[in-house]
Design a protein around this nucleic acid. Sequence first.
RNA 1: GGCGGGGUAGCUCAGCUGGUUAGAGCACAGGAUUCAUAACCCUGAGGCCGCGGGUUCAAGUCCCGCCCCCGCUACCA
Length: 512
Amino acid sequence: MSRYFVTTAISYPNGRPHIGHAYEVIATDWLARFARLDGRDTYFMTGTDEHGLKIAQAARKEGVTPQAFVDAMVQHFVAMCDKLNISRDRFIRTTDPDHKQVVQALWKKLEEAGDIYLDRYEGWYSVRDEAYYDEEDLVVAEDGTKLAPTGTEVSWTVEESWFFRLSRFQEPLLKLYADQPEFVQPSNRMNEMRAFVERGLKDLSISRTSFDWGVPVPGSDNHVMYVWLDALTNYLTPSGWPAAGWEAKWPADLHVIGKDVVRFHAIYWPAFLMSAGLPLPGKVFGHGFVLNRGAKMSKSLGNIVEPMGLADSFGVDQLRYYLLRAIQFGQDGEWSHEAIARRINADLANDLGNLAQRTLSMIAKNCNGEVPVDGPALPEDEALVTQVSAMLEEARAAHAAVRPDLALDAIWARVSDVNAYLNEMAPWSLRKTDPARADVVLYHAAECIRRIAILVQPAMPESAARLLDQLSVAETDRDFAAFAKCLKPGTQLPGPQGIFPRWMEPEEDAAQ
RNA sequence: GGCGGGGUAGCUCAGCUGGUUAGAGCACAGGAUUCAUAACCCUGAGGCCGCGGGUUCAAGUCCCGCCCCCGCUACCA
């Protein structure tokens, strides 16, 4: 059985989750659910990156310990996953004990490989911010002192730091990109990474002594590991490496990440793994951002979109569907109230919802509420089934390409086909002239809806399950292996119930 | 500044190595219909294909110049 290990980036919980977090985890959930339904041995991980200066500072501001701070904040991320029906196999936290062990083991391995050495890190440091700043970001005050962008004073500081010999990996990385041009997707990101590496790589400072909220460096107690070495290693943690049997859960097939962290995943992470002699992940996919009416979300603009409330007002599946369908995966996309409302009505209520409703209610009224009798199929019936069947391979191709939007495009094209088929066949008229033929038409429509519902599951698990319930499809016949396993005539159906209600603005609702 | 991508219907986008009247979805208008969630189905309107030159029998598609937008350009993640 082919394995599919997919991850999201781990979120930095210095604030509550916003729609960007929801987007990434929903898209990755789609990938994981799809793989599971396709019979693959799937492992899906998401989680939180809990160390580092910003967490320590945020905790201090609230007067709590960093651990207490993250324990509280992580709740919101877990709650979001629960709310959004995220089928993760593990929610990893970088404060988990097994993670710390793996990171320290990896450190030792890099050290053994001769890729870690002690040196000094120099830069403009702000004691107040506990952070280094680039020369070009500094502003000079009237009295000539240099200030950080935050307005605090900086001074040239030299700090002892461990370094990773990233420079050694320039050629190996370029070879990786040449051998596996799809290692980084979309391709424009690959080009950016290649250009970055071609410019030359400097060694990477991978420890800090200026704060202590992190994983201690083995044998160097005053150092904590620098964020990215700690964070990236989360992907390796569930394998239990270097303990025996780690090969069962490493390497990952796919890291789904935001476009802002592509460099860390496409350059640093493979370099660390190469140094340790470990296999590399199959692919890194950098998705775009969800923009609020075209504007980037930020705390200062006060336009951050919060996912939990959206799931409450529009529905979890509706929110999932919108994010997966309306945004081309890999590009930036737009969020707006109007846009999701349009999608809900056009795609879910009018197209799929209405298709199911009209078909199932005709069956309920005219076929004793049973799957109608199939009969001799006309070319039109066969053409429809052929079209609808092709959808599975189209969806698989979209999954392989990490494009949930394309999979849904393909599925909805079929929804439209089935609606057109019904209009053309007009079973409501046939009922009066040729009832047996009307049954055959309804049978084919219902069968197509079953197939569509099976493929809709990764995007909208709850709604698809309700639809399959209404078709009396057994729980065990809902994976892709059952795709071609047709409805049995005579099966009792529970009777139609609307699955995708139209979206009405609350004030309209109240007025009626 | 350097490197890369892009500017096509109101909106989001397809248009591969140049070749019949430039396409899709949504939104809009009309028609048909009434099985269905005022839905579905059909038809239509809507486009100096960023601007200006050039190559060619023929350019959204190639070449040159210009304008505008976006991404990357290492230690906050």
